[in-house]
């Protein structure tokens, strides 16, 4: 089963692709170095990096899923921490 044309790898000199979402982080191909407002830099060598856009992250500039909607009901989320 061949890949569809849209899955053809982009050439190495292609512009870096950033995925934007109305609700959620910016997704950037890693590694990245991020310069913060105070001039300091932080870096991540993860294959993909999620950058916070809602400003609620406690691990800013990295997304920590704080953008999620909140409900008043109880719960833990169902799954094992992975």
């Amino acid at each position: 089963m061949p890949n569809s044309p849209s899955e053809t790898p982009r050439p190495p000199d292609a512009p870096r692709r950033i995925k934007v979402q109305r609700r959620g982080p910016l997704l950037v191909e890693g590694p990245v170095e991020v310069e913060l407002e105070d001039g300091t830099t932080v870096s991540s060598d993860r294959f993909r990096v999620a950058l916070c856009t809602c400003r609620r992250s406690r691990r800013y500039p990295w997304c920590d899923t704080s953008h999620r909607a909140r409900s008043s009901g109880p719960g833990d989320g169902p799954a094992a921490e992975n």
Binding site: T65, R68, A69, R70, S71, S72, G73, P74, G75, D76, G77, P78, A79, E81
Partner: peptide, 14 residues
């Protein structure tokens, strides 16, 4: 359903 976080969760991690 998984993308909604409860404000007052009662699970094990809470």
């Amino acid at each position: 359903a998984l993308l909604v976080e409860p404000v007052h969760g009662e699970g094990v991690s809470h």
